[in-house]
Nucleic acid binder design. Structure first.
Lengths: 251, 251
DNA sequence: GCCGTGACTTGACCCGGATCAAAACCCTGC
DNA sequence: GCAGGGTTTTGATCCGGGTCAAGTCACGGC
């Protein structure tokens, strides 16, 4: 929503301020919660006790797997994560890519099992929130409950968006614009994106063939919308891109 | 999940029992909540005060509209409701169809505005749960909180399903099987479905052309999977249908 | 340097489902 | 009954994007 990041330069460690935690948490989906003050001190302590920083995971490692009992939700702390499901025929279906500060695992609540794998795309660290405990806490801190409600609601809306029948151009434009917005919110450049994932993952996520992604990116470049260099994408005409994406992002 | 309805014959008013409300609520997504006993009496009363039965709506009328401030969620009490969004180019996009006992409006939480219209497909009555009040109550009754969490989580998973790239056959089989299951859970026949909505709505929901829906239904009939009579569909080979739908429903 | 491997691109061709057009059907009102 | 509107079906044609196959490129190992 807010295009230009208000908290710049994270995660580059400069601007010492209140220390790393403080700076990270202010860009996290849960930030409002973890940093909140003016609340019941006791409950707040409980929340900070409840958060567990996981050891770094390497590319390809999984935070949780399809079918595992749902026990916690995670906030990405560093790196990028994809969620996916591999059906019994071995076909992969990618549900989403997650940047630092975004939450994964909420969809496991329903069936009490994770309905997807969460796979690190590079070196990733996570914050783990054990769930029964978090939900108990949510009854004491209405702010947590509301945050959880809002985040889940957001996921419903987002999931519905990719379901629409859009052209390859619209999908790819929306993908790029959406990533740009999310990078910007986190203080990265809104115009130079580094795509951590292979083309095949982008294609799978957008329900296209990898060849189509390749071709559309090339055409976008020929039309002056972007410049592609390997996995580095520079947006050179973000207005036209947004116009292309408007149906998908419907905002 | 439970295929054969345990609470049969509703909404046909027979089997007097504890009265209409009791019988309806036992099939509602919120039923566990509204009927729960052994809980804090005071809070339970609050919930029942909070529920408001709306006047019947006729086909085409809207419970809420895109962009309206989010104020309540609704459980369908009778009839069928569709949710949809009409984009600025006037194209309709249908998000879902909702049977008695199912909840609509949860996706409005995120942006504090409804992101879709909720339209009655026939004569519809609803239970209205004012939201700020419900959320306050959820902090007092953990069961309500959990129910809300689970329902939202379910919506996330469901929304993701239709996003996959499936063939027209898979989509339609999944649509029919899913409807059959949901009808059965509510005590209707699992094998004779009445489709309340026009073909064009089914097509739109499944991201197909109406002509394709028509053709696939006809082919299903020729193959002995179903018998179609106007909007009445009889499933004659539910096993084969479920096999066709297995990728989409992934269960 | 050279090879091997995997990611990406490019071209040729094909197919599922969209689109267009027309007919059949089915209500509802008169 | 008939006329007129909407819904559904059916057929003919078209096209976006998938599939197949062959390159090209980048990078790591030796």
């Amino acid at each position: 929503m807010s295009p230009q990041g208000n908290v710049l330069r994270w995660p580059t460690p400069q601007d010492p301020g209140d220390g790393d935690t403080q700076r990270f948490c202010s860009t996290c989906a849960f930030g409002r919660i973890c940093l909140i003050d003016g609340y019941d001190k006791r409950a707040l302590e409980d929340l900070h006790c409840l958060v567990e920083h996981t050891a770094p995971m390497h590319a390809g490692e999984e935070a949780f797997r399809y079918g595992e009992p749902f026990a916690a939700i995670y906030a990405v702390r560093a790196g990028m994560v994809k969620t996916r499901r591999i059906d019994e025929q071995g076909r992969e279906q990618i549900f989403g890519f997650f940047l630092p500060g975004e939450l994964i695992g909420l969809n496991g609540l329903y069936s009490a099992r994770y309905p997807c794998d969460a796979v690190a795309l590079d070196t990733v660290t996570l914050c783990r929130f054990a769930f029964p405990a978090l939900s108990v806490l949510a009854t004491r801190l209405p702010g947590i409950q509301e945050t959880l409600f809002r985040l889940m609601s957001k996921d419903i809306v987002n999931a519905a968006l990719l379901g629409g029948d859009f052209s390859a151009d619209e999908r790819l434009a929306a993908f790029v614009v959406n990533l740009s917005d999310r990078f910007a919110e986190r203080g990265y450049s809104a115009l130079r994106l580094h795509l951590m994932m292979p083309r095949s993952d982008i294609a799978n996520y957008l329900r296209l063939a990898p060849e189509t992604v390749s071709r559309v990116l090339r055409r976008f470049q020929d039309d002056g919308l972007i410049v592609v260099d390997k996995r580095e994408v520079t947006l050179t005409d973000i207005d036209r891109l947004k116009h292309l994406a408007r149906c998908v992002l419907q905002q």
